[in-house]
Nucleic acid binder design. Structure first.
Lengths: 240, 240
DNA sequence: GCGTGAGATTGCGCTAGAGCAATGATGGAA
DNA sequence: TTCCATCATTGCTCTAGCGCAATCTCACGC
């Protein structure tokens, strides 16, 4: 946090406290007000520009992030260079959770900001003693980890048993819930075919064909870099 | 372990302590000897016959298991009734980890014993206070959870990007390491085509064709219900 | 307004692997 | 020893979705 001219302070401490209370992140749930203040005091708010890398798979997991504003997502890159396994990190979610482990570890996935974002950052050697002091943090982390496992299991079952069209439809549905902006005639999604392809584990050609078909059927409107979805539910239902 | 006619005591307390020390399970790592005794004192050893269900997906997660003898595995059943996502639970591994969460939850996957097995069982309401008393247990649980996430990620990447033959070869390799019995001419695996198919997410036909091919090439010997693998490494290497 | 380059589309061919059916082997029960 | 259920094999067909190439179309910079 810079404090003088030219400098910008990301957020003041009281802004942070207000925002965290508003978000009520799972990770900080159940802490007494004064304990919460201690934990927050150990974090620094940090701003990330859209599309910047927050944490890198394989690098030493030395920072824990809590999203405050904006949106990020995680992904892995396979040896062939394909991005996959994309999990969204909205405000109130944590990223880089491996920093919380008692053994030093490497990040399991990469995290990048999608929009301009702000996250609270704890250094590993700041958060670890706090976790020991407030075991509730560990309990919360365990709940979050358990959610991850569930998400991955679902993802795995989906890629194994669902058709490409269903997967793409589901991705659109999730995106609509997550980053969709409601407007006059449906939910607007600013996303490229390529990104959809990565998330659904299909090729850009398949995405293009499916979107064209759904466009024809009036289920959505596609234009370069954006999709407007009438009804995500119907889309999933009608995707064979 | 029978003590007298009809009656059977699974294990004596000192046998349990010895066995746990021998296994050094991650979950109990770093506990002082006396603390360990307290934690073990809260568990009951229980015997499971081969192929019996230990925990059921979707049921209330009220018991935590620590494998002591034998072998178990986890799986999910999709709506179409396919078994998938099989993770092995050898001695020293935990099962039913969701019982450890501070919020009551349901089991995420089912667990079944493969061979005759013995597991230590903690009731959720016995282990939760212990976890609070010894936060090291939570730290350990978090490490284990983190491993699960890694396993699932790898599984997901594999099903998305690896060919069927590579997946089957990998499954054979893992099994060889896990439950394989070394013998004169390779590692013996008692497993049916159907089980292989479930684990690798392919059909029994594909399994049969691949095994035949590898048999022809001299990489393994297949007979009903068992496979003998010369060299798991070479198998994975030569699977396109 | 005009070019231009990245994204998007679409036709075509191709292949991995599923699914089915007929057939064959095997080992446990009686 | 025979029988039979279960498991395994193999040929055939079929299709979802990939991959390539040619073409098109925006959105943006100038």
């Amino acid at each position: 946090m810079k404090t003088k001219s030219g400098a910008r302070r990301v957020m003041t401490n009281s802004e942070i406290v207000d925002r965290v209370n508003e978000l009520a992140p799972d990770f900080l749930g159940g802490l007494a007000k004064s304990d919460l203040a201690v934990v927050l005091g150990a974090a620094m708010p940090r701003r990330f520009h859209a599309r910047s890398l927050i944490a890198s798979e394989g690098h030493r997991a030395d920072k824990l992030y809590l999203m405050i504003e904006g949106l990020a997502r995680t992904f892995t890159t396979t040896r062939e260079g394909e991005k996959t396994v994309i999990i969204w990190v909205p405000p109130a979610a944590v990223a880089g959770g491996r920093a919380l482990l008692s053994q030093p570890m490497e990040y399991l996935v990469s995290t990048e900001s999608v929009t301009d974002s702000v996250a609270l950052v704890w250094e590993r050697n700041a958060i670890l003693p706090l976790a020991r002091r407030y075991p509730r943090l560990l309990e919360n982390a365990l709940l979050i980890a358990s959610d991850y496992v569930e998400t991955y299991r679902d993802l795995h079952v989906a890629t194994s048993f669902d058709s490409a069209s269903l997967r793409v439809a589901r991705v659109l549905g999730n995106l609509a819930k997550g980053i969709g902006q409601r407007s006059f005639e449906g939910t607007v999604l600013n996303i490229s075919n390529e990104e959809l392809a990565n998330e659904a584990n299909v090729t850009i050609f398949t995405v293009s064909r499916l979107l064209s078909e759904w466009h024809r059927k009036g289920l959505l409107v596609k234009s370069r870099g954006s999709v407007v979805i009438r009804s995500p539910e119907e889309l999933v239902r009608r995707a064979s």
